[in-house]
Design a protein around this nucleic acid. Structure first.
Lengths: 222, 222
DNA sequence: AGGTTAATGACAGCGACTGACAGTTGACAA
DNA sequence: TTGTCAACTGTCAGTCGCTGTCATTAACCT
């Protein structure tokens, strides 16, 4: 299955692979451009393929489906976050590690995403995902899988068993819920931008405590 | 758009409507039966229609899609819960109202569901939803919409504005997250049954506090 | 240079879903 | 009762996402 390639940093991708990646990137760019301009559902796979002058069949050789293209960037971002989480010191409390991993992630996403497509396209695509029901559902489904992964990660970190102790899954679920509320609000508002996202994230995480308290009317400060 | 039907309890459905509901119920029963026995994806719409001896086109006149049939019961249950929530006294704290509404809901679901199909079918279908990726995603998407609705309901109850105060959405999101963890665990375990679900729900709600605390290792009691 | 292998194009087919048209059958009034 | 209207349905054709198959092209390797 593997020759002598298990080392790090491939020495040279080779012409064939370079070509392959080039058409993949072209397909991705065309797809996102079409999705963000005329909408996800109003864009057919044939259109995307035609925009790159490639057969429809080729599109499906690079992406599992239309949906896969829509989430290509989002997947990068989530993987980026999980990596950041793994890098947190073991002594940190679980929720603290989660919080720092996200905030730290927002600062370095531009580089990861920008290497493939203009960052602005990611921001626009995020809006499309949040505003297209079927994409939002798919997004939540993917998030659920990521959360399960993170729950196991945290449990292992703390030496707990996810199958008998509900706390890891609960904590991650709550954290994910807050992130989703944040992302939704961010995509709805006018002022996009990663800085605003960072600030919104921190603000919402700070509001979880008050939100879970019973006396909302006591303090009427948003 | 409406004649003189705004009153409550239709005096008589009329033969035509009775017939219509009969074929709808038959389609729903056939669909759920097929979904739970051979799986959602391995069941075609033609199969469902054929099982009721009806054209495929007719299926789509009763259900927006295959997915719609799969969630017919789940929609009833969610609506049931929202109704229960509306019935909670205004003086109750938001989270307390949510908690009591769910627990109260689990006690009366059998009647609501049982009027259409055997309750056991609902339990089996729930498992199918949780174990079929595309259905799970759709379920989460629907839940998101329900949560938005509930957030507005709670905000109105407490005299807050959902657009400026993040606490209602946060509280509902956290609550929904806990419910999802509960449902997932319930559908994975062996002992189905509404009583177990009730107990699991209460147990998980009680564990949110400990899960959000930083010191998981302090207490190693699941 | 010649054989191997991976990427692609072209074609056929399945399943979910929609629009259009026609036939049947309850509902309701003359 | 009868005739008209509207609702429910069946049939047919077509779109779109997606998959399997096979031949062709071009990069890779010896």
């Amino acid at each position: 299955m593997e020759t002598a390639e298990t080392a790090e940093a491939a020495p040279r991708p080779g012409l064939r692979e370079r070509k392959k990646r080039r058409t993949r990137d072209a397909l991705l760019r065309a797809a996102l451009e079409l999705f963000t301009t005329q909408g996800y559902e109003r864009t057919t796979v044939d259109e995307i393929a035609e925009a790159v002058d490639v057969s429809q069949r080729t599109f499906f050789r690079h992406f599992a489906g239309k949906e896969d293209a829509a989430f290509a960037l989002q997947d990068m971002v989530e993987a980026h976050f999980v990596t950041a989480l793994r890098g947190r010191p073991a002594g940190e409390a679980p929720l603290e590690a989660l919080r720092r991993a996200v905030l730290e992630g927002w600062d370095t996403i531009s580089d990861a995403v920008g290497a493939v497509v203009p960052v602005e396209l990611y921001l626009r695509m995020f809006r499309v995902i949040e505003s297209t029901p079927v994409l939002l559902a798919a997004h939540l489904g993917r998030s659920a899988r990521t959360e399960e992964q993170i729950a196991r990660l945290l449990a292992a970190r703390e030496g707990l068993d996810v199958d008998t102790d509900p706390r890891p899954r609960l904590a991650v679920a709550v954290f994910g819920a807050v992130m989703r509320v944040t992302g939704r609000l961010w995509s709805t508002g006018e002022d996009l931008g990663l800085e605003e996202m960072r600030a919104l994230t921190a603000a919402h995480l700070d509001q979880v405590g008050p939100a879970l308290a019973g006396n909302w009317r006591a303090d009427t400060r948003p």
